[in-house]
Simulated scan of single mutants.
Amino acid sequence: MVVRNDTPIEKVTSSIFVKREDLATLPPGPPFSKTRGLFQHLFLLSRLGIRCVGYVETAISMAGWAVAWLGKKMNMKVIIFDPQYKDDSKFPLPLHRQKWRQFGAQLVKMKAGRACVNWYIARRWMKKNVHQPWKLLPLGLPLNETALETFAQARKCIKDFPTIVVPVGSGTIACGIARALYRNQRLVGVMSRTGDVRRKFKFVVKWCEYPTHVDIVDPGYPYTKKVDIKTPFPCNPYYDTKAWQWLLEHEDELEKPILFWNIGA
């Protein structure tokens, strides 16, 4: 087993509760819930004959950690495209590189830049250098399997909460929760990086039976902006803490009780 079937809901205040999905992945995997569905996706790829997967990492993501860990479990070769910065000590990259190497991934240095551009550079590299069946995984791991696994989690536990607040990066976790919404509920997705709100909304609500019950908000954070506030539970300062801060600032506007969906720590 690589993920827990259930994670706890903890009471934070009389009106705010937290779904501890940062506990979804069993150690030594990363403390975030996108591992849900990733195992199934890699298993399917292996059944289709894929022997090598690549992933283009960013300065702050834990996705490469998950890919390296699960790839090793499945005897797949993993290649992590490692962004190079003049000073990466302010990011969690040193720890993440340690994890990639711990699980046997090959690291390929890549100039830091726009991830969508680097993805195509990485694909060209793999075409030239990998001589076995391979696949370059999509940026941010927006996997249907992850959305469906999140839906299964949410459907079991959200019914008593009129408002659910979730951080939104790729939007994959929000997709699963949106699919699980009941008629009288509202989902608020808080973007961890400033961007196209309408595009993100369309991505999430295509999973949803009640699209008018979904809101995507953009507090305006740059992607690598770290929010250092004290939280009553482990919370990722590049993703989840941004949504937690938004919740605290807008609590009076939200119907209660509120469930905060904590993706990672």
Rank of each mutant, 00 (worst) to 15 (best):
A59F: 09
N118Q: 10
K34A: 01
A105H: 00
L93T: 05
A115V: 11
I60T: 14
K99S: 04
A68S: 10
R97Q: 07
Q84K: 12
R97A: 10
Q102G: 10
F43E: 14
S33M: 11
V67P: 02
V56N: 00
C52H: 10
P83M: 11
R97L: 02
L95P: 05
W69K: 06
Q98P: 11
S89F: 12
G104P: 10
V78L: 01
G71N: 02
P92Q: 06
V108P: 04
S33F: 08
V18M: 02
K77E: 04
L26H: 14
L23A: 07
P83T: 07
F43S: 15
F81K: 02
K111E: 15
A59Y: 07
R97H: 11
K99R: 12
G71F: 01
Y55R: 03
G54Q: 03
A63I: 07
N118D: 04
W69E: 05
K72A: 08
R101P: 02
F17R: 06
A112C: 04
F91K: 11
F81A: 00
V67C: 05
P30H: 07
C116N: 15
K72H: 11
L95F: 15
R36I: 02
E57A: 15
A112G: 12
R114Q: 15
R114N: 13
L45S: 00
